[in-house]
Design a protein around this nucleic acid. Structure first.
Lengths: 332, 332
DNA sequence: GCTTTTTACTAAACCGTTTTACTAAATCGA
DNA sequence: TCGATTTAGTAAAACGGTTTAGTAAAAAGC
């Protein structure tokens, strides 16, 4: 039982491919196909459960209804959640998602970008590390529909959906200071992307503005390749340095630090406050207490899809930069 | 600057499409294309950065190198993690993933299954709720390459990668009993899939085997559509019923219960032990203590991809059922 | 009753590849 | 030196749709 094509349908019914195609695409009336014929074709198509070949359609139409979702890691809850929201929003418009996780490596990003282009995706949603500006610039030059989120690059001009990184972080740290924080450490993954640098800048500014000396030994970078273990090690340094507050630049590292505090520093667990960029459900009850800067993921997903649709439809070269306000969730 | 096709390359270089295609597919030698010509073509192709159109290729070859990943929700860490592992394993073989989240609804599952078929995916990896056995049977009858994981249906004959649900749960509960559990409640999402029923059966068997009466009022089902709130409500009942242990059938509900215990039942937090199917990092330190049955997600991903490849390559109709052993992680 | 318009449909080109079946020229063997 | 083989390629069909440009017959207009 091979799959039936329009050609088969046409032959079996004694019509031409053209007629069948018109009917299937709801152009029957417009193209003067008689009601009787239309019904006959539709009935038959239903009977044999004909399924159009999207690939053939895509080739002819030059449109695949597919969007590439390029991110560091789909198993990171932040990208998974936004991915899910985007999936639903796009599904309503008839688009579907191909995913690509880069692990922040240029090699994989290149490969995936090429794959997406070869597969003729209609657009790209990406949280890129911008290590391959060359390829991105080429795509931008061809006006390939792209929307970037979560990360930005000062030298790359494109559509961005971002959150206020610096000021949000600054605000969170300032609140902590207002509530008595004096010795404030920072733990970050390697700040290979601009957004992370901005978060660190926010931390620095909060300290300066409050006349707290910035002690670079309290700013510690963990090894991305060995996140959990490295977080544990760096955290130990900060605990030994008697900080009263630790600031984290993303949720993954905060989660690992909570783990390490509970397993290795129980005795200090009530003496240290955490401030995290990104929220996690477990922050509602975890120890230490975590005040977090929650990104508005629904809004991020909405804007991303909206702007992508705009750039896919319009021929003009628009370039929007939308900066959303994160929400500070204080837990004291 | 429109995209170049093989035709353009051929014209610009004065060769035929055939020759260019042969060279690009490494069939130059085999097809007796001279070294000089091969080099000329390859050099030019590189110069103009020619990118083959995968869609055209797929149409002609009848192969898209795309796999559909159909699951309840990609933002569920369990499916996201397995998804990521599968993504990497498949990428090595030249395949990529289109995702579809069903929210456990038959409507969405139907729509997505149809979408995958129309898009000519080469295979399907699915954690289906099996509510649309009809459609799945149709696909199975056409020998569509499919591998099911995480869930099974007793009436559906296909390739399954599963974990021992009943015995693993039974073992976990028995351990709890051995460590003194006397009054043991159970909290589950609606057991609309067989795997969940098996887990509940495991709980029941553990109690019977240890001569503990099964009190159906201690078996509580939460509302899938309002998981967090409903978990809180049902948990309250169990706490008030003075259970000393609560068994959960998946990680999502356990996470919500940990949240609810911390927020609403602090005073009892040391009196109750949790037993969870599925592991989460936070179980390492969360209160209450959580003993968990950890699914071997790496193995699941490996077997899934292996079997899928097998069924895609072999024409014979194989039907494997692989049952993996989960790991009990005791935290006392 | 003849031209014009409308109705109902179709042939063929096309999207960008792959692949089968050829051909013309060069080389080889005896 | 002549037939066979090898070398180096090409033309055209095919994949399964969409779309353009048509056509023949029926209906309408006058």
């Amino acid at each position: 039982m091979k799959k039936k094509s329009i050609k088969d349908i046409a032959q079996e019914l004694g019509y031409s491919k053209t007629t069948v195609s018109f009917v299937l695409n709801n152009k029957g009336d417009e193209k003067n196909i008689s009601k009787k014929t239309q019904e006959k074709i539709l009935a038959y198509v239903r009977e044999v459960n004909y399924q159009p070949n999207q690939i053939a359609k895509s080739l002819k139409k030059g449109k695949t209804n597919t969007i590439g979702y390029l991110i560091p890691d789909i198993s990171n809850p932040f990208y998974a959640k936004i991915g899910r929201l985007i999936e639903d929003l796009l599904a309503d418009k008839g688009y579907h998602l191909i995913i690509g996780s880069t692990d922040e490596t240029q090699e994989k990003e290149d490969l995936l970008l090429n794959m997406f282009v070869n597969r003729q995706v209609d657009g790209l949603i990406l949280a890129s590390s911008f290590e391959n500006l060359g390829m991105l610039n080429t795509l931008a030059a061809q006006r390939f529909p792209m929307v970037f989120f979560d990360r930005e690059h000062p030298d790359f001009f494109g559509n961005y959906i971002l959150v206020e990184n610096k000021n949000a972080m600054k605000g969170a740290v300032q609140k902590a200071i207002k509530h008595g924080a004096k010795k404030i450490g920072l733990l970050s993954i390697t700040p290979n992307v601009y957004s992370l640098e901005l978060r660190i800048d926010g931390y620095r500014e909060a300290l300066s503005d409050n006349l707290i000396d910035i002690d670079n030994s309290l700013i510690r970078i963990v090894d991305n390749n060995n996140l959990k273990e490295s977080t544990k090690v760096q955290l130990k340094h900060l605990v030994e340095d008697q900080v009263d507050t630790i600031v984290f630049t993303n949720n993954q590292i905060t989660a690992h630090a909570i783990w390490a505090m509970n397993i290795f520093h129980q005795e200090k667990i009530d003496d240290i406050r955490f401030v995290s960029f990104d929220n996690l459900d477990l922050f509602d009850y975890s120890k230490p207490k975590v005040t977090s800067v929650a990104q508005p993921i629904e809004k991020i997903a909405h804007y991303t899809v909206d702007i992508l649709e705009e750039v896919m439809n319009k021929k003009e070269c628009i370039s929007k930069r939308i900066v959303l306000e994160p929400k500070l969730i204080e837990r004291l």
